[in-house]
Amino acid sequence: MMEFKKKVSEMISLWIGEEVAVEWRIDIKGVMTGWCRLQEGTLILPAAEAVACLEGRLSMITAYLSEQAKLKGVREISFHFDLNGTTLTLSIELPLEGARIPSLTHIFRNADWNEREFMELYDIQVVGHPDPRRLFLDKSIDPAAFERLIPYSTFSNGANSKALWEKVMAQNNHTGKEIP
């Protein structure tokens, strides 16, 4: 296990040209997860090359925008890789405005949909994506949907629920008996 951990941090360090520290956690079943925050967004490209050299597989990409990060003026993306049963999460921080990251599609083919998806949900531009069209969102929905909607807006403010409940309460009285 020591050998494996060492191999992973050495390979990433080698590719990005500086020492990185990976924090390892082991759960009660003995399943290991590695967590590492890269100093700069662009470092994800060499780090991904390192993971490819370790025969890793891209499992998922999570873009997110927490209130805490926003206060610091940043947004985050986590890249989750599978190393034969061990999940390695590499996280980066990007600016709130004008966030850009290089596409990983030439290293991991399946980065394609992952990148298309976070491009339509968040204000992040992927440089070098071969096909940066929308994936799931209808064209009528505003771009960067998750950012526009996070303060309650017309769609998610419960307007629909309110209207339905008004009808329910108008047709049934409060005593539990149906109005004749």
Partner: peptide
């Protein structure tokens, strides 16, 4: 695969799954 991020409230800050 599920990724969960929490902040101590009873709603997830981010819940992502593939």
């Amino acid at each position: 695969i599920y990724y969960l991020k929490t902040d101590g409230t009873d709603m997830p800050v981010r819940l992502k799954w593939r």
